[in-house]
Amino acid sequence: MKLPALTLLLLVVAAGPAAAAPEDLANEVSAEVMSPYCDGVTLHDCPSRAALELRDRIEGWARDGWSKSQIMAELEREFGPGIHATPQDKEGVAAWVLPAAALLVGVAVAAALAMRWTRRRGAEQPEPVDPSDHARVERELAALREETP
């Protein structure tokens, strides 16, 4: 299994990201900022004429060679920090940290429970099973699994 995994990794790394066309960069930016004209909707998804004009302006900046961060900075200067569709700065840290923390805690608790429960179970078994018996049981279980849909 190691060789295919390595091959895959090499292929994926070699593929690398493609350079974005101005239209694609404009679409990418407009999907990452909220619309100043439609409440709770990204600029990309906002159907208003004003949003259409702002998307055109962003595309114009992209054609002029502006980078994504330059466009984002210009939008923030014009519309304020609330334009970002993802929480930013210190007020936004908790938005990112808590889901990650919840995942870590969840995985840690589940792992600890599984280990504890299986250890207890192990302690309840006083004698080790004979390897030949174990092999026979494994064989029979495998056969049983085969026959049980």
Binding site: A31, M34, T42, G82, A85, E91, G92, P99
Partner: peptide, 24 residues
């Protein structure tokens, strides 16, 4: 749930109305 209510939480804690949109 956290992403959905975070704008309210941020507003209550810091008085800032943040946006939590699809990229988050």
């Amino acid at each position: 749930l956290w992403g959905t209510i975070y704008p309210i939480v941020a507003e209550a804690l810091w008085g800032t109305r943040l946006s939590v949109g699809p990229p988050f």
